[in-house]
Nucleic acid binder design. Structure first.
Lengths: 201, 201
DNA sequence: GGAGTAATTGACCGGCCGGCCAGTTAGCGC
DNA sequence: GCGCTAACTGGCCGGCCGGTCAATTACTCC
């Protein structure tokens, strides 16, 4: 580093390291990232990374914690904005979740890396989300607005997983014949999903 | 190697290397696997791996090609066994696919590693499967047995993606409150999915 | 203004990696 | 039986990794 005066701002330094680390870990996964490359991207030296985070592994844990905390906070905010639970709200929630993932592809990739390493630490946060969402579905079922022969957690799981996999596998399914755009797929998924969870007359 | 006589069987050697490689690559991903560990698991030396496959990267490509070819062949066989397309056949196909993935967790993981590295080579094989499946859905729609306002490829995509993500994210969602077993989830998914694709009277 | 601390740096280290090389030998064809 | 080739081995190498260490210095507190 030769241009910026060596002023001290440890909080800013930690944030820059975490930002650079997140970008590289999301793109390449833990093992493929080199600390020398990460240091360069963050504008610091490797020693400083060790000073602030201890080790590469601890930095990786910090990146995941920060990202999942952010995800949790954003989802909780959406949940708390929700009005009276009914079928229309469920539909809007699915749309919002789909658009959130579309706008945050890093989240999707981070989940995939985390699943592959068998790390279920993210459940500690998002199980509260799923629990709250399931309670919401249960209330809507009690009011007769959603069919009540389906496990409410499974209702949440179906749309969360379909949306997540859509964005994880984009490089794969975009070559399948006849596949439509993000919005076209969302529309079709909602047709199936909303019809499937609505009680029959 | 000290016990087995050094008999020569290059086909067997290649198969042993590929088997060991697949197991380790599926578990750890390309970057984290060391050739020394792989050689030990295969019962050969590193030099022999280079002799047969050229490089670590080429071995990884060979592993993926072999695995996706196997997946393709198995799915094609199931497609060709299929009787007259109707809603019951769609249901049985979803069940069969779910059980295939349950019994082959390595396939799910290999797809996830492949997606993360942005490799869409697997599309070259399975786009034929999706095309055939979509044509099958289209015929069923024409007969009035499935609702015809949904893109047939999206019908295939919805169940393929939900099933895949269910097994990829198992370590994650098994901690969500209220979640059921594999079969319980499959039952609920089928309730939603089959109701969603069936035409209303 | 000086002492002390923590932020920050650059050099260095031991370990380990992927790949290569020289050598051995199983086995096949003549 | 011999020549030849490809299967197979063990040692070695240069490069690069994660992490450490000694040193510098920004900055705070007294």
């Amino acid at each position: 580093m030769n241009q910026k005066p060596q002023t001290r701002d440890p909080e800013l330094t930690r944030a820059r390291i975490l930002d650079a680390a997140e970008a590289l870990f999301v793109e390449q996964g833990f093992s493929a990232v080199k600390l020398s490359e990460l240091a360069r991207a963050a504008g610091v030296t490797k020693s400083l990374i060790h000073h602030h985070f201890g080790s590469k592994e601890q930095l990786w844990q910090a990146v995941k914690n920060r990202a999942f905390e952010r995800y949790f906070t954003a989802q909780m905010a959406m949940l708390e904005e929700a009005k009276e639970p009914d079928a229309a709200l469920l539909r809007r929630s699915v749309e919002a979740y789909f658009h959130f993932l579309r706008d945050n592809p890093g989240v999707v990739r981070l989940f995939a890396w985390t699943h592959l390493e068998g790390d279920n630490h993210c459940s500690e946060l998002d199980s509260q989300l799923v629990g709250a969402g399931a309670e919401w579905v249960r209330q809507t079922q009690l009011r007769g607005l959603l069919r009540d022969d389906i496990n409410p957690s499974h209702v949440i799981a179906v749309f969360v997983m379909t949306c997540t996999q859509w964005f994880e596998a984009k490089c794969h399914h975009e070559n399948w014949p006849g596949m439509g755009s993000d919005e076209a797929f969302l529309e079709d998924f909602l047709k199936i999903f909303m019809e499937g969870v609505t009680p029959r007359e």
